[in-house]
Design a protein around this nucleic acid. Structure first.
Length: 406
DNA sequence: AAAGAAGACAACCGCAACTGC
DNA sequence: CGCAGTTGCGGTTGTCTTCTT
């Protein structure tokens, strides 16, 4: 015989909470702490069961909860962690400060899952669904798109697997400060042991590849926003290579570029070169020069991980070629994947400036402070901070320490 | 303008793990 | 070790809002 829930048995109130109930609970917990949830409702004068009170507090009333729309970095984190952890919402929530597991779960079920599904990616496995490659049905472009997704996905998963392996084998002394014990298998046990011992958890599960992509997006957005360019998303059309600015390595606009699909660069393509002298041979004028100049900073900003991911994806080429590939992939990724939110660069830039602001040695620590009288970012200072940013991003400590984003 | 559908989110339920005796 | 009570978690449902026809 199934025991009736206490709430039912005692005829306690269920359903949505009223403002008065919230106030009672809030006032009580703030004054006395929750103590035993079971005894709390009577003490607080609530006609609710303790469990209901606990849920209301943890999911809604707690003061350290952030509500409202999820930012792009938060979405990325959820997707990335879901690929790693599955439906372990509480574990995912630990990497999203001020978000509750319930909120993340709801957001996944109502938004992210559907978005992945529409993209043809299985939201459970995070792999492209086999049956979406419709042959002979005019879906060649979509198939190519999805193939690209699959390629990135595979690279990502490999990176994650590598990272997981390394996080188990790398001496934890590399993590600052050194955690006192290794990660035991059961998540729940970990948590409780931490709570009991007050110890720092083992290396936080933040895959470096996500950070690299995020960082890359930040730099790319920065370059384009400074120029007044926009990486405008065609959203549903999935036609990025034909319609959006594309970076083409090396060749002048009047010469056939071997790296440019289709040969000659398109009108809105942007030529990239490592050799400043090439300026003289390119028919790039006016505002495009500004961007051109900014792009010459790129090899310095391009750290090993981005470079290697580009090499892995496209093969070894010149730095400019691999930069173009990495950029185009990143821009493509922004436009054609679940990460795409048209013109939604603010969260990425917020995060970039936030991280730059952590530079203890650089007093000019945000992009806002770097702006000159013209409202543009001084290239030398930007170069310094960008390089610093990449150095930070490539350092293992930051890659593995989720506190970086707290 | 009204009705139904879909979306979004809060809340509930049941189970498993943990805790203290 | 066993048991009862408590807490945490994830799946599911209910309700309200927004959108579509």
């Amino acid at each position: 015989m199934v025991k009736a829930p206490r709430c039912d048995k005692e005829g306690l109130k269920k359903g949505p909470w009223t403002v008065e109930e919230d106030q009672k609970l809030l006032a009580y917990v703030q004054e006395h702490g929750h103590g035993s949830w079971r005894s709390l409702p009577v003490k607080a004068g609530l006609q609710r069961c303790g469990k209901s009170c606990r849920l209301r507090w943890t999911n809604y009333l707690r003061p350290d909860i952030k509500r409202g729309k999820f930012s792009l970095p938060e979405e990325q984190t959820i997707i990335q962690l879901h690929a790693l952890l599955g439906n372990r919402w509480s574990a995912i929530a630990k990497h999203l400060p001020k978000r509750t597991d319930n909120e993340i779960k709801n957001y996944w079920n109502t938004h992210l899952k559907k978005r992945l599904d529409k993209m043809g990616i299985d939201p459970v496995t995070h792999k492209p669904k086999a049956n979406v490659f419709g042959l002979g049905t005019g879906q060649a472009k979509d198939a190519a798109t999805l193939s690209h997704v699959a390629q990135w996905e595979r690279a990502r998963l490999e990176a994650e697997a590598r990272w997981v392996r390394e996080s188990k084998t790398i001496p934890t002394s590399n993590i600052n400060p050194p955690p006192p014990y290794q990660c035991p298998p059961a998540a729940r046990s970990i948590k409780n042991k931490e709570e009991i011992s007050g110890r720092r958890p083992a290396a936080a599960a933040r895959p470096p590849c996500l950070d690299v992509l995020k960082a890359w997006q930040g730099v790319v957005f920065d370059m384009f926003s400074a120029k007044g360019n926009s990486i405008k998303s065609p959203t549903s059309t999935l036609t990025f290579p034909e319609t959006s600015p594309r970076l083409v390595p090396g060749a002048a606009t009047h010469e056939k570029s071997t790296a440019a699909p289709g040969g000659y660069p398109a009108d809105n393509d942007i030529i990239v070169t490592n050799n400043p002298d090439d300026h003289q041979t390119n028919n790039v004028e006016g505002s495009e020069w500004e961007c051109f100049d900014k792009l010459n900073q790129v090899p310095q900003m391009m750290n090993q991980q981005v470079y290697q991911s580009s090499v892995a994806m496209h093969g070894m080429g010149s730095p400019a070629t691999n930069f173009c590939d990495a950029y185009n992939d990143s821009a493509w990724f922004l436009e054609n994947t679940c990460f795409a939110e048209a013109n939604d660069k603010a969260p990425v830039m917020d995060e970039l400036t936030h991280i730059l602001a952590r530079n203890p040695e650089d007093k000019k620590s945000s992009l806002g402070e770097l702006e000159n009288n013209n409202g543009s970012v001084d290239s030398a200072v930007q170069n310094t901070t960008s390089r610093y940013y990449w150095e930070m991003m490539s350092s293992q400590n930051l890659m593995m320490d989720s506190n970086m984003f707290n």
